[in-house]
Computed example of a mutant assay.
Amino acid sequence: MWSSLGGTWITAPHAVQVGADKIALFTVGTDHVIRVRWRIDGEWGGWTVIPGEVIQVPHAVAGTGDCLDMFAIDHKYSIQHRQWLAGEWSDWKSMTGEAGGPTLTAPRAVWSTPDRLDIFVLGTNLGIWHKWRDGDDWTDEWSSLGSLWLTPPHVLSRGPGRIDAVAINSESGLAHARYQDGEWGTWQTDDAIAISRPFAVESEDLLHVFVLGENRGVYHYTWDKEWSEPTSLQGTVISPPRAVARPDGGIDVFVVGVDSSMFSRSYRNGEWHDWKPIGGRAFSPPSILAHDRTVELFVLGADSAIWHTQVDVA
């Protein structure tokens, strides 16, 4: 059952699992200011203002302990960074450097080791830029991962010092690059046309990637040193897919259908099951939190409020 978390918002929500019993939920109000709402031990608190105007929902990642790193884009298209430590927010700090200037999207961040935080951003020159922090110190310069990209990368770490990045290039091709042993490999591209930002998960040591094709259908790829042939998951959707991987090797994919309601499709024991309706009225892709046998979904609703539901995926 869907329940409203209230408010009037202009961006999709972004939910982060901070601890076993602690969730932070971010969104942006009509005044372009970030709000955060905490759920601790199952109880939601009120919305709290994080001062400073931004142009889109921030991206936050949890570190070890009760801490968060949050990245946002201000009205000057500059990257801003803030930390949650010991129950308090630090001040905003500008991420200077070449990619710290005009930027299109909030950086995506991933912990590649317990002490190293890597961030990736799409600049206004349509280049993908990369920077990292080792301990408390950020690298001085941004490194380029190529130019003329249509989407920011989706990134994940599949082991200490390993990062997988997937993005759509200027020819609408799905591309993958890996960081390993201190170096980036070359981008490997599939020839099929993709029209949405890809979303990737790891399952049974394979990289599974989901993207929309020209027909607005969902396609599933795997990458294992090379791209597999895409598998059509059928249907027509209006949102980029989101997915979670299960410990037993299963995968669950979530999309918004043409009627604006949510649907899910499950991959179990090497086979795809049929699409199942979840209902609701979603005007954004879902932000997903995966638990042992359930998945929580947060979406922007037709009334501009944030709506939430929990789905069994056992």
Rank of each mutant, 00 (worst) to 15 (best):
S4L: 13
L5V: 14
G6M: 14
G7H: 04
G7Q: 04
A15K: 02
A15H: 02
Q17T: 13
G19Q: 14
D21E: 10
D21F: 08
I23K: 10
I23E: 11
L25K: 04
F26M: 06
T27V: 15
V28G: 06
G29T: 11
T30E: 10
V33P: 01
I40M: 06
G42P: 05
E43L: 02
G46V: 12
V49T: 15
V49P: 09
G52D: 10
G52T: 13
V54Q: 08
Q56A: 14
V57F: 10
P58S: 13
A60H: 05
T64I: 15
C67Q: 12
D69Y: 09
A72W: 03
I73L: 09
K76D: 10
K76A: 12
K76Y: 08
H81Y: 09
R82M: 14
W84T: 04
W84P: 03
L85D: 14
A86C: 06
A86R: 08
S94T: 12
T96E: 06
G100A: 12
P107V: 10
R108S: 14
R108N: 13
W111G: 03
D115E: 11
R116T: 13
L117V: 02
N125Y: 03
L126D: 04
G127P: 01
W129G: 05
K131D: 01
K131W: 01
W132I: 02
R133C: 08
W138S: 05
T139N: 03
D140F: 05
S144M: 02
L148I: 00
W149K: 01
P152C: 07
P152S: 11
V155W: 01
P160N: 01
G161I: 01
N169E: 01
E171H: 06
S172V: 07
S172I: 07
L174F: 04
A175L: 00
H176Q: 00
A177N: 00
A177E: 00
E183Q: 04
E183P: 00
Q188G: 00
A192I: 05
I193G: 05
S196Y: 09
S196K: 10
R197W: 11
A200H: 05
D205C: 06
L206W: 09
L206Y: 09
L207Q: 03
L212Y: 09
N215E: 15
N215Y: 14
Y219K: 04
Y221T: 02
W227C: 00
W227V: 02
S228V: 03
S228Y: 01
E229Y: 03
S232K: 07
Q234P: 06
Q234M: 15
G235H: 04
P240H: 15
P241I: 08
P241R: 09
R242E: 06
R246N: 06
I251D: 04
D252K: 07
D252H: 11
V256S: 09
V258C: 14
S261M: 09
G270L: 09
G270I: 08
H273T: 13
W275Y: 12
W275G: 06
K276R: 14
P277T: 10
G279C: 07
S284E: 08
P285W: 06
S287A: 09
S287H: 03
L289V: 13
A290H: 04
H291I: 03
E296F: 13
G301N: 10
A302C: 07
S304K: 13
S304I: 11
S304Q: 13
S304A: 14
H308E: 12
H308K: 13
Q310A: 14
D312P: 08
